[in-house]
Write a protein that binds this DNA or RNA. Sequence first.
DNA 1: TTTTGATAATTTTGTTAAAATAGTCAGTTT
DNA 2: AAACTGACTATTTTAACAAAATTATCAAAA
Lengths: 205, 205
Amino acid sequence: MSSGSDQQDIKREKILEAAYQRFLHYGYSKTTMNEIAGDLSLSKALLYYYFPDKSQLYTAVMRKLAGEYLDKLQNKLNKFTDLKEAFVSQINTQHDFIVKNYNFFDFFRLNEQNLPDTIWEIITEIHQAEMVLLSAAIQLEAEKGRIKPVNNPGEIVDLLLYALHGVRVSAVSHKKVMFPQKEHLDEIHAKRLLLVDIFVKGLMY
Amino acid sequence: MSSGSDQQDIKREKILEAAYQRFLHYGYSKTTMNEIAGDLSLSKALLYYYFPDKSQLYTAVMRKLAGEYLDKLQNKLNKFTDLKEAFVSQINTQHDFIVKNYNFFDFFRLNEQNLPDTIWEIITEIHQAEMVLLSAAIQLEAEKGRIKPVNNPGEIVDLLLYALHGVRVSAVSHKKVMFPQKEHLDEIHAKRLLLVDIFVKGLMY
DNA sequence: TTTTGATAATTTTGTTAAAATAGTCAGTTT
DNA sequence: AAACTGACTATTTTAACAAAATTATCAAAA
């Protein structure tokens, strides 16, 4: 990382920030490279000096957000006292993250099926980081004897994360896909808390 | 239902069957009304005598399938001995149903976002029927004192069904949407069994 | 009442041209 | 040399249109 000069890193950050604001307000497809350059009073060509193309600029922003998200998650998980608390932290942190950056993910809602591979890589990275953190939490809880011994914590975490992912808004607007509507986020959040509650009890003796 | 003559009903059934075969092999968009008519050596116009339009023909087939699915589910759920068994029945029956009719749902995979309302109505009907059956199972189990008393069984069933719905194939092919790939169905099925196992335990004392 | 051939209406597909935007590069500035 | 730009090219998106395929209708026949 950061093989360039400090000056370069600072400019890179500025571009990232300007791009983030644009993507957050207008989404990927309604943001042009010209506009981002204009916001910074730079030429478009300079953007290409710092980033190979538009999608990799978007990806870089996404990567930054992911880093911030994981940092926050890690901080919270450093001081959990029981497993449920750990899972709840995950849900809450993710909820806040989604709410805050909702419009940024327009890109996801539109492309749905065929997101670029780089995006999937980041999603996978996040998923794996969560796996590590939460698996450790399970392990610890098992060692303390508060839940049944688990031979494969990763499998359990994986299952829970996917189950949580599936918790979408109920019958009325059954028409759900991978990305929920903004109005439903709180309802989803509540359901997830309930699921975690039941799930954790299911892991106990 | 069936306000027409027996003859009419028989013909209707034949059309439904021919349409089902076509949809199963080629999916909705690659099936033309001419082809269905051709399979039965009828004129296309006759299809419109029996069904108002193509999408309602598809819907009628779907409705029939849904009926068969729910019948099977109801039969199994009539003789469950504990709650886990009931949930497992649901998973198994649904799994068989999806495997058998996989190609029929091409329509779903393609349209994804904007399925016609009639389709959503059927999905909602199925969901509600499942809710009734499984809620009753929970109620019964609670009365027998095998799980904690539940003030709102529907909420629990709803949660489980959505959680199960979210159980998709893991990290590698993270690229999943509402409809899983055929090769992954068995893996998903196994995960769902595990989830039900934990979930049911979580409902116990 | 059931069925059809002929025909109308609509949707899909393919073509093209224009506009918008992404992306490149020779050359200038610091 | 590193940071930067204006002018350029390449690619993608959009709109307009015609042709083809398909859905849907209907008057008349069986």
